[in-house]
Design a protein around this nucleic acid. Structure first.
Lengths: 120, 120
DNA sequence: GATGAAGGTAACTTTTAAGTAACCTGTTTA
DNA sequence: TAAACAGGTTACTTAAAAGTTACCTTCATC
């Protein structure tokens, strides 16, 4: 194994599509809500810049994790939802989630209001 | 769910410890080899700067994914190996890996010399 | 006819991550 | 006695990611 081989290894590819400051939260919302409008999502994530949120959504769309649905009309209405390919990430995300709960509880426990969360 | 809650959610914590350009490949080596010397690792990953490799190793050590073992003597001899906590990431990484193989085969297939790979 | 709505874009700045190059440590070997 | 070894550190540069602000569209309402 050398680095050039590794670049195209599945692990790297998968982590690649997840890398981006806001992508995990976006996925999180879409896993729970299945359909959300751009502005609603934007307001739900209070600190993200519109531009950056758009960039991340575009990348995720390109990676086919999410689907962008534009109704034509005014004011514009754009819905995002998770794709099958995106949904298929569920088990892997759940595995990461449970690793953190079991092995990095200190960090996770900073979340005061614990809540069972399932990504499936 | 708001963003502040999400920051400490397990998914974000887990992705946090994995984020870093060279961390996946480091894990990859350590999953296959269990013990590797710094310079050996450095030479195995041809393009990484020593400084950066060290930074990533330090972070992973802090996150307790890996264990640094220093023999005292000269020339220095430092071995890195995966910890139990790190090993416990195996199933999650395997899940990511297999997601990529099933759903992003185009990208993974750029790896000409395919080889079955297991992270367990 | 100005204002506000939703979903953008464009130009620019700041912050963070990664990369480069030179140097340091003591022991061994040439 | 000078070079090579392994594992670093330091000071500095570059590139990439994220953030800021202002502006655009087109229709509806004030």
């Amino acid at each position: 194994m050398n680095y050039n081989e590794f670049k195209y290894c599945g692990l790297n590819v998968a982590l690649g599509v997840l890398s981006g400051k806001w992508k995990p939260v976006i996925l999180f919302y879409l896993f729970h809500q299945e359909e959300i409008r751009f502005t609603e999502l934007w307001r739900a994530i209070p600190k993200v810049a519109k531009k950056v949120l758009l960039e991340q959504l575009r990348q995720m769309e390109q990676d086919e994790l999410i689907i962008r649905d534009e109704k034509n009309g005014f004011p514009p209405e754009v819905w995002y939802r998770i794709s099958e390919k995106g949904k298929a990430l569920g088990p892997a995300l759940a595995a990461l989630e449970s690793w953190a709960n079991e092995h990095a509880a200190e960090k996770v426990d900073m979340l005061k209001s614990r809540r069972k969360v399932t990504l499936r």
